[in-house]
Each structure stands twice: as C-alpha cells, then as structure tokens.
Nucleic acid binder design. Sequence first.
DNA 1: ACAATAGTGTCTATTAGACAATATGTA
DNA 2: TACATATTGTCTAATAGACACTATTGT
Lengths: 237, 237
Amino acid sequence: MLRITPRGNNDTRAFPRFAVTVDIVLLSVVAGTLHVLLIERADRTHRGMWALPGGFKKPDETLDEAASRELLEETNVAAPGHLTQFHSYGDPGRDPRGNVVTVAYLAAVPPLDNRRVAGGGDASRADGVPVDDVVRGRRKLAFDHARIIRDAVDHVVDQIDRTPIALGFLGPTFTITDIRRVHEAVVGEPLDAANFRRRLLSVDRPIIQPTDRLNNPGTDGGRPATLYRRASARSRR
Amino acid sequence: MLRITPRGNNDTRAFPRFAVTVDIVLLSVVAGTLHVLLIERADRTHRGMWALPGGFKKPDETLDEAASRELLEETNVAAPGHLTQFHSYGDPGRDPRGNVVTVAYLAAVPPLDNRRVAGGGDASRADGVPVDDVVRGRRKLAFDHARIIRDAVDHVVDQIDRTPIALGFLGPTFTITDIRRVHEAVVGEPLDAANFRRRLLSVDRPIIQPTDRLNNPGTDGGRPATLYRRASARSRR
DNA sequence: ACAATAGTGTCTATTAGACAATATGTA
DNA sequence: TACATATTGTCTAATAGACACTATTGT
C-alpha cells in the first residue's frame, strides 16, 4: 500500500507552516577549556534568558547563507571555514512562540575579543561561557539550546581526529602545541606531545605547512616553536 | 555591534513561513549494489517525475516521528533502528511550489519485497534503482533529490566502519559474509574475508552475537556459516 | 646554571594486511 | 572426488604509545 503525501491538491499552502531559524553554536578554546558564546535576550517573550545566537531564515537565502549572516550580525564574526550544519530540531512545543524548526550550525573560532562581541543592539549582554557549565546544567538556557550545545560538542569530539576542524579554533598562524591544546580541550585529557606531532605531520595530505618564522617564547622561556599556517587546497593535492 | 534577531516584536508571525518536509533516502543492497527507493509522483505539479518518498511534517510530531510515519505510510516499511537525520536543505527555489525546507533522513533496510512496495495510492509506481544511476546522472529526479541521495551515500561511506549501520541492511539473522558484502557494496571494492571477520569480532563492545544455528549452504555447497544476530544493548555493556 | 618548552630517537605493543591452510558442506 | 564457502593460522608491515634524550630559549 503505497501513497504519496499529500494526496490530490499538492500545493504547499494546504499544509502547516513553520518558522525556520538557524542557531549557531560558536565554540572557542579559552585557557584550555571549550567555551560557547551565549547572548542574553532582550525580547518580550524571553527577556533575561540566555540563549544561542541565531535568527530567522529568509526565503531568498540558503541555510548556509542565513547562518553566515546571523553569525556576522550578532557576533561580528566573519564566517570562518568551519561553519557546518550538524542537526535540525523540530520537537513540538520546543519554542513557545509557535511552530519553529531550527537548523543548527557549528562554528569553531579563535578566542573572542570581548570588546568586539559585548553590548549593543537588542541583546543586553553577550558572553562566552564554559560548555561544561551548560552540559552539567549549572547554566539554564532558553528553548532546547542546552541539548543543541551538547549535540554540537559531541559532533566536535567525533570530528576532531578526522577533519581539520581544530584549526578553526586558531588564528592565521599557530604552533603544533597550539593545535594539541585544542585537541586536549576537546577530548578532555592530555596527549603525548611527541606522538601527537608525529601523527599530525605524517598524514598523506598535510593540512598545515610550516612558515619560516618562529613564535616568541613567553617570559617562561623555552625553545621557540616553528609557526605553521593552514595548507592551501592546492598544496594538499 | 551585537543585535539579536528579530528586533522588537519577536512573534514568529512577523517572519517568513516555510513548509517543512522530511524526505527519506531508503537504501538497500541488492545483488551487491546499493539501491535507493524512488516513487513516481502522481500529483499535478510533478506528474511522472521520480522523487524520494517523503512528506510534510505536522506541528504535533517530532522530525523523527514524521520520518517514521512517512516511511511507513509510503513504503510500508516499519522504522528500522537506523533511521537517522543527516542534513537539511533550504536553497531558495529548490521547490517550485514555494518556500520549503527539507530535513533528510537515511534508512538502511533489507532488500525490499516488490509485492509490498509497488503500486497503489497516489504514486503511479515505486521502484528501487541503483544509486549509481542517480549519482552518474543517468536517472533524472525531481527537486534536488539527486544531490540529497549523493549526500546520503557519502554519509553511509563515512559511517560504515564506525557504526553498526551495515546491520540495517540485513534481516534478523545473518552471516559474517552477509555483513562483508554490505561493506563491499558501500566501499565499492572487495574486502579480505579473514581480516574482515577478525576486525568485526575483536571490537570491545561486540555489535553481533552468534546464534546456535547455521545457515543453509546454497546449491553451490560450501561450509555452512554460523548465523549471527544483533547484540542486545544489554550485552554490549 | 636552571627551568621551560620544542623537537627527535627508540623501543614495544597493537593493529592491519596478505595469504596459506584447514573445516565442512553440495553435486 | 571436485568444488565452493567458512573459518583459523601465520607471517610481515604499519601504526600507536610510552618515554628517554637533545635543542634552544628566558631568567
């Protein structure tokens, strides 16, 4: 017994309508700990509640474009390479304002400059908080945003060893130790520096390439590390 | 400069509305080849075009429930374990009927019984076709369904070695050779039987467990293989 | 000199892969 | 018996992990 839906009149106007939002889980690694950017909402229905940045998709843009636009508008962060869709949410009642389906995106960015991200607009505040506070329930969020963040972190843990996503957390140049610290923050345990380096450099298509510069050892001293940058798509051939 | 969207009146009625559909990529392995189930549409706007089964999400059901319901309604297949959401699509103009966002699901099922899947209802036909025909463009589909199928196959290739998804393609009992043939169909190359078996059985949390039965060697003979079944969640502890 | 961090060498254990050998069925 | 398929054994290569050691800086 095979039927296609809808029967007869197939015009979409005959079917329930939803608002579609894109929400962005903006992750960074600060002091060895994963952080997520939250905003305090100033709108009437959710005043004072903390939530993920995001907003409504427009009919004339793609989902990816909507995510990039919202990210730029709300956090002043230009869309980085790793802005990836990871799951959609549509449970009934998840948004008290009505039928809302949310497409969630994940962005890995370098530590945020608080001066550029805080204050202004309709959000009373914006703040990066440790994801652990959210995951452990110490920080309550609006909607199902705590679950979305949990799913995003699971996704990063799943991808960290198989994709260059760790580089999203770093600036244009970085040391191998920088990359390792990102991995350590994600997996939650220390990694052997020697073995990590070997594995990273032994892949067939290198994702990083050395520059001719060294970084500046801090006041603590130590041998200066070579600075790397992302390998161009060309050099990865 | 931080603003939250929307400004002021935050009621969702002020924002564009979309129809939300769930489409299901129903994959099976027939004669060593990946197949996908397509239906021929009988509705006014797309009469005669082949497309993925799917339909509109209702406000009072989750996305997963909508996918299970549509799968059951349109293909008579009860939702198997591996009905997983893998991507959402919202490009402007992707559906000529208007603003439609589609959440795509992937289902791995045993080879379909044609008597149960064909004919009836508003679909003039239903048919399992080799995914290769779709991927290589030999079979034209409605909407962006060819791209969705390509993404689904990429997802399976990515997951086949890391999840029990292969078991979705098999019935309640199966031999290790059955599992290997599924893997071979997905990765597109033959796998060493001895090494495949060892790897499969040496995982710490076994995903299969032997029964006390053997399967019946075909008319070609050969040593009968032990039949396995899925390991219960309990025995995986 | 001493502490701190980067980077190399080396040894062992584990895993992956090729492929031979054995077990058990049908025709 | 000849053939087909399942299952086990064995050897080698590649990889992963622990950890000692060398290199280069700041104080």
